[in-house]
Simulated scan of single mutants.
Amino acid sequence: MTNISKRRIKGRFDDLTAPPPDTTGMPEDVAERKIREHQEKKQRVIHRRKELTPLLHDLENVGIVVDDVWDLVNTNEDYLEAVPVLIRHLELPYSEGNKEGIVRALTVKAARPDAIQPLLRQFRNATDNDAVGLKAAIANALDVVADKSVMDDLIALSLDSEHGPARADLVRKLARWKRDPRAQHALEHLVDDPYIEVGGRARKALGK
């Protein structure tokens, strides 16, 4: 059996080791609320990381040791060997916070091209259509990893207003391809999109 060398990747932030808030000079009720919120946040992190146990185990099996998938998001280190594991776990039923961490960890060029289709499926299936959240994070990942082989998919998703402002980064991707007539036509249509995040990106791309 081959021994795999392991390396620990530490993110720049760790909610579990963050010190409690300085409540000096605060009214007693405010100080108590701040401390309580800090403790509750730590408990949420503990619960979220417990759910991540299968992913963290699989990452360690390929030589990547982390306490949290967000450690990969908050690092400048490369983690190419982790990408296939992340893609596999992307399509498992994690909670939204952990799913977003996986998505953001895949928002790297090293995830091309294998992550493209899984990310497209995740975007179609996600139900939060807000400008910030899981679906918007998936759009941001597609902006980084998608190539022209899925341009027609991105155009169709960008033109579908049911996806709301979460489409904004898909439009940014189309803006990079605006010399292609297909992208150009889609951007011209999106100029009048009812969501300012989407229409604004289209207008900026076309210089309007």
Rank of each mutant, 00 (worst) to 15 (best):
N98C: 14
I4N: 02
H189S: 10
A168R: 12
P54I: 08
P181T: 01
N3W: 08
E37G: 02
R7P: 00
L190C: 11
A168P: 00
D180R: 08
Q43I: 07
L55N: 02
A115T: 13
T2W: 09
K135V: 02
V103T: 04
G25M: 10
T23E: 10
Q39N: 10
Y195L: 03
V73E: 11
K10L: 13
H47I: 12
Y195Q: 13
I46K: 15
A168I: 01
R124S: 11
L154T: 09
V144R: 12
K41D: 10
I196V: 08
I155F: 00
V66N: 09
L206K: 13
R44E: 14
H89T: 10
L106H: 03
L80F: 08
L72I: 13
P21I: 06
D143G: 13
A146W: 04
G63L: 02
T75D: 01
G97V: 15
E28N: 10
A82W: 04
A82P: 01
H57K: 15
T53S: 09
A183P: 00
K34C: 06
R33C: 00
P84L: 03
A166Q: 03
Q117D: 08
A105W: 01
R44W: 08
K178E: 10
T24A: 15
A166V: 04
V45I: 12
R121C: 01
I196A: 08
K41P: 00
R48E: 10
L157M: 15
E40S: 07
R172K: 13
R176Y: 05
L154G: 09
K41A: 14
P165K: 04
T17Y: 03
A166I: 01
K99Y: 05
L190T: 04
Y79C: 04
T17H: 06
F123R: 00
V69G: 04
M151P: 01
L134F: 02
V69D: 05
L119V: 03
D58T: 08
K109T: 15
L106S: 03
R88T: 15
P118F: 06
V103N: 03
R179I: 10
H185S: 12
